[in-house]
């Protein structure tokens, strides 16, 4: 298989991310695909901190830090401001966490996509508010412990299903929507390249495992990312020109293989794991049906 990942590094050493940070790999791969002629908006999230303290930056692209809910509006402004000066060749992207995308920033995202700006919105999904210490977001999956869904004697883990923003973007008929994860870098790179080639709004949701938030050994980030796909917990799919295409892993595994590695699911009983398995299977079937329709 030929190597498709560009060698150029636009994320430098000296960033402040935790060991084994999936979101850092996400940024590294996305920037490789986006290229140096990019303008990036980062709202409040882990990545508002990872590039490092003023005046240093670990990224070799211009960045605008924005208020929490403002990623969608900021890339709209970047795009139109650059275009107004004939700088259409910039790649404009947002790099936002799941809280800033699924919760407080959803309105701004939806509106930016609806307006049709030539922008790429990247949601790096670590499934909770990780920068502030693991608080539940709309993108936190069913069954997960977080500091705001603690496992106590009366109130337990998150009982609600994950809000999958990529599906919302498909419902909105955004020209290009994809899910990706850092365990499949060639696939991620390909999706960024496609996004870059399309003039219009694009959305990519990247599952980005988080060792301190998910409670696993920081050496296992890539392994867990791959397991998320192989257990079908986080299916990889693309939506383009109104068509859905789902990636079918060569081997599939039970969800327990994915859940058991992570402390955030440690409290789940066997019957509860089975519930998760059932929900995952149902979603998978429904995705396949959508692909065929």
């Amino acid at each position: 298989m030929p190597l498709t990942i560009p060698r150029e590094e636009l994320m430098l050493q000296g960033h402040t991310a935790c060991a084994g940070c999936g979101a850092t790999l996400s940024m590294r791969y996305v920037l490789k695909g986006a290229g140096e002629k990019s303008a990036v908006a980062i709202p409040a999230c882990c990545w508002a901190v990872i590039p490092g303290e003023f005046p240093y930056t670990a990224l070799k692209v211009p960045l605008i830090y924005t208020t929490f809910a403002s990623a969608g509006a900021s890339i709209s402004g970047l795009r139109e401001g650059l275009d107004a000066q004939g700088k259409e060749d910039y790649t404009v992207l947002a790099f936002a966490g799941d809280g800033g995308t699924a919760d407080i920033g959803l309105q701004g995202l939806s509106a930016a996509m609806e307006r049709g700006h030539n922008v790429l919105y990247v949601m790096y999904d670590n499934e909770a508010y990780m920068n502030t210490g693991i608080q539940r977001s709309g993108s936190t999956p069913y069954g997960a412990w977080t500091t705001t869904t603690p496992v106590g004697s009366k109130r337990d883990y998150k009982r609600e299903n994950k809000k999958v923003v990529a599906d919302l973007m498909i419902a909105q008929n955004v020209p290009y929507v994809a899910t990706a994860t850092i365990g499949f870098p060639e696939d991620l790179e390909r999706k960024v390249a496609i996004a870059k080639s399309i003039k219009g709004p694009k959305f990519i949701q990247i599952l980005s495992p988080c060792p301190p938030g998910w409670y696993y050994n920081s050496a296992d980030t890539v392994k867990i990312s791959k397991l998320a796909v192989e257990t079908k917990v986080f299916p990889l799919y693309e939506y383009r020109d109104g068509k859905l295409k789902v990636y079918k892993p060569a081997k599939t595994l039970p969800v327990s293989e994915y859940l058991s590695l992570q402390g955030r699911f440690a409290h789940l009983r066997e019957d509860e794991v089975e519930e998760v398995q059932k929900a995952v299977d149902e979603r998978w079937e429904s995705l396949l049906k959508k692909e065929q329709s």
């Binding site: 924005t66 809910a69 403002s70 900021s74 890339i75 402004g77 970047l78 401001g81 000066q85 309105q107």
Partner: peptide, 27 residues
């Protein structure tokens, strides 16, 4: 001769002109 962004809220109106102004375009 200007780009006109029909934002969905005033919060976004201000966020978008901060960004466009920072590209060097009077907003």
């Amino acid at each position: 001769d200007a780009k006109y962004i029909e934002v969905e809220s005033e919060h976004s109106a201000m966020a978008s002109v901060i960004a466009s102004e920072l590209t060097g375009a009077r907003s």
